[in-house]
Simulated scan of single mutants.
Amino acid sequence: MITTARMHRANRGSHFRAYGLHGSDPAQFDPFMGIDHAWMSAPTFPPHPHAGFSAVTYLFLDSETGIANRDSQGNRTLIQPGGLHWTAAGRGVVHEENPAVLGSTVHLLQIFVNLPRERQSAAPFALSLAPQDVPVVQRPGVRVRVPFGSFGGARSPLTPPTDVTLLDISLEAGAELELPLAAGQRAFAMPIFGSAELNGESFSLDNLRVPILPLASKAMMHKLVADPGGAKVAVFIGEPLHQPVLSNGPMAFASQESLIAATAAYQRGDLGQL
């Protein structure tokens, strides 16, 4: 049985708007911790810390410009439209992301992915994937990009610290796509444009609903169908980590002691500066 969650609108002036998915129950999207589907055309967030999880930025192909990413580890990356940057914050890092060309709009997903407990206090590192290296799977009336994870015999070359899948799916009017879900996995679908149905459950930006497939006890196939106007959908798939989530906002750990230690390290300046 499908359950649903609601997205929430957020704006910061005229240069940033987003639909956010952040559940009050950490188990609801586990191992994902939150997602923002956003449009940004000017610097919005000053340099800020992350620790205990991964902050992932994926740019849709219709972005007018890229994202300039920099962090306190010395990484400097230009994320191109259609590309991806994965910051595994580990014990802590400070980073900042701004549109490469101010005034041009970036269309993106900001995805927060939990780290397995044993990786939460590891050294931070970053992974990047160029647009041309993202695998594409074609089906009748359907185009699927696979920025991380796998689908339809295609696997992303990215090897992230948490084994999860993102599918950027474009469907023509009335097109259908079968989504396999392995035993032990959970999935949910986020509307990007248009409206669609997942196993008969309708969702779109108009109703702000996100359908969540139940944790699979066995391998199952699910059906995604676009409405007459077509649709663009992001599907997230992962195996829950089933670990505590203790958070102060920019940091989240499985233990209170680790959270306190990372917070103190940031306040001392041990996470570095930009």
Score class of each variant (00 low, 15 high):
105 T>M: 09
33 M>S: 08
140 P>I: 15
41 S>L: 06
38 A>D: 10
34 G>Y: 09
128 S>D: 14
32 F>G: 08
119 R>G: 13
122 A>P: 13
130 A>W: 00
88 A>Q: 13
73 Q>V: 02
144 V>L: 07
138 Q>R: 14
85 H>Y: 03
107 H>T: 10
41 S>Y: 04
9 R>Y: 03
46 P>F: 12
39 W>S: 04
69 N>R: 11
61 L>R: 10
14 S>Q: 14
40 M>Y: 01
35 I>C: 07
81 P>G: 08
57 T>C: 06
128 S>Y: 06
70 R>G: 03
32 F>L: 09
66 G>H: 00
14 S>H: 13
85 H>C: 08
19 Y>E: 07
143 R>I: 12
95 H>Y: 01
56 V>D: 13
38 A>V: 06
123 A>E: 15
62 D>I: 04
137 V>C: 13
29 F>I: 03
100 A>I: 06
104 S>W: 05
97 E>G: 02
13 G>A: 07
86 W>I: 06
90 G>Q: 12
64 E>I: 00
70 R>S: 08
123 A>K: 10
101 V>K: 05
50 H>S: 05
142 V>H: 12
49 P>G: 11
16 F>M: 00
40 M>D: 08
16 F>P: 05
113 V>S: 09
37 H>L: 07
106 V>R: 00
101 V>D: 02
139 R>I: 11
121 S>M: 15
52 G>R: 11
29 F>E: 03
46 P>E: 09
100 A>R: 07
25 D>Y: 00
70 R>D: 01
63 S>N: 01
65 T>I: 04
122 A>W: 12
70 R>A: 05
92 G>Q: 14
69 N>P: 03
83 G>V: 02
80 Q>K: 06
79 I>R: 00
103 G>N: 03
127 L>G: 08
81 P>I: 07
35 I>L: 14
66 G>I: 04
132 Q>C: 05
111 I>K: 04
126 A>F: 06
140 P>K: 14
137 V>L: 12
26 P>M: 02
104 S>V: 00
83 G>P: 03
140 P>A: 15
63 S>R: 02
